[in-house]
């Protein structure tokens, strides 16, 4: 139900994939996929984009920190109508990962309000987004419900 690429395979336990690139540079692949933020060394503010300076305290030094891979859904929407080429429906969410807010899709869950709610526990997972002409696989990420 992720509907995000041409294929939809769990790659977290993939054998020896040819060559992979992450959908975004803050997704770290490998045996233990996770997200990596830039943390301001002065105030601790965390960012996922390329930085010029800190929006909170204006300092310019950052260090890379690993973001917790499990979290709680703080907000969501089920997008039923999107830009051309974007498969719908999908669940967009903000996940509180141990105090760091992360934006991502909820995947491996029915995209309807009976199955998605704020406060639900989710964990990071990756999937194959597609393969380019050179045979390189692009790997995306999303969050799936934690069963218990």
């Amino acid at each position: 139900m992720t509907s995000t690429g041409t294929t939809d395979t769990d790659t977290t336990s993939a054998g020896t994939p040819p060559s992979q690139v992450p959908l975004v540079d803050y997704l770290v692949l490998g045996d233990d996929p996770h997200l990596l933020a830039s943390e301001c060394t002065a105030c601790g503010a965390r960012y996922f984009d390329r930085r010029n300076a800190c929006a909170s305290c204006f300092a310019t030094e950052f260090t890379k920190v690993r973001i917790a891979s499990e979290g709680t859904v703080r907000a969501f929407t089920i997008v039923a109508f999107a830009a051309p080429g974007v498969p719908v429906p999908f669940v967009s969410a903000v996940i509180d990962c141990d105090g760091t807010s992360v934006r991502g899709n909820l995947i491996n869950v029915e995209p309807d309000p009976d199955h998605v709610h704020t406060g639900m526990r989710v964990r990071l997972t990756t999937y194959l987004l597609g393969t380019d002409d050179a045979g390189t696989e692009a790997i995306g990420f999303g969050f799936e419900p934690v069963e218990n």
Binding site: P22, V24, T77, V86, S92
Partner: peptide, 23 residues
């Protein structure tokens, strides 16, 4: 600025206004 290899809209949440304000 995210070093994205494909559009992130719809893959990493939504950029659409109705979706943003829904959240």
């Amino acid at each position: 600025r995210y070093g994205a290899v494909a559009s992130t809209d719809g893959r990493i949440g939504t950029d659409t206004m109705p979706g943003v304000f829904a959240q």
